[in-house]
Simulated scan of single mutants.
Amino acid sequence: MPVHAELDRLDDGDLADISGQGGIYLSGDISINENGGPIQNTYFGSCSEAEKRCGARIAYRLKEDGGWMVLDDIRGKFSFEGLTLRVRAIDSGFGGDGTLFNRDVLEIGLPNIVRYDSVQFKLATSSTARPTDPGFQQTDIFSVEMQGDVVLEGNLLVFPTGNP
Rank of each mutant, 00 (worst) to 15 (best):
G135N: 15
F136T: 05
P38H: 09
D133G: 05
Q147F: 14
T139K: 14
Y25N: 10
G66D: 11
T128M: 06
G98D: 07
L71D: 07
G109K: 08
I58R: 03
N102Y: 07
A56Y: 01
D133A: 13
I58Y: 12
F121K: 04
G96Q: 13
L85G: 02
Q40M: 10
M69S: 09
E34R: 10
G55I: 10
N102G: 08
A56R: 00
D97A: 13
G76H: 00
E49C: 04
L106K: 01
R88A: 07
D29H: 02
D140V: 15
D140C: 02
R75G: 04
E145P: 03
Q138Y: 02
Y116N: 09
Y43N: 01
S31W: 00
D117W: 11
V150M: 14
G67F: 03
D65P: 01
L100Q: 06
T125V: 12
F121W: 10
I108R: 04
Q120A: 14
M146R: 14
G93W: 07
T84W: 01
S46T: 13
C54Y: 07
A50D: 11
L26S: 05
R130K: 14
I74E: 01
V105T: 04
E153R: 15
R103L: 08
P131L: 10
T42S: 07
S31K: 13
G67H: 07
L110A: 03
G66K: 11
D65I: 08
G28K: 06
D65M: 08
T84F: 05
A124H: 03
I141R: 14
S127D: 06
D65T: 05
L71V: 12
P38G: 12
S127W: 02
R53S: 01
L83P: 00
V105M: 08
F101P: 02
A50I: 08
V151C: 06
I108P: 00
D91V: 10
G66A: 02
T84C: 00
I108N: 11
V70H: 05
G93V: 09
L100G: 03
S118A: 15
G135K: 03
Y25H: 08
A129G: 01
T128Y: 05
A129S: 13
F136Y: 15
L62I: 00
G135V: 11
Y43D: 08
E81Y: 05
R130F: 09
T42P: 09
I74K: 01
W68M: 02
T99M: 11
S92Y: 10
F78N: 03
D91I: 11
E153I: 13
N102T: 10
F94Y: 15
E81V: 02
T125N: 09
L110Q: 07
F44D: 00
V144Y: 09
G96D: 07
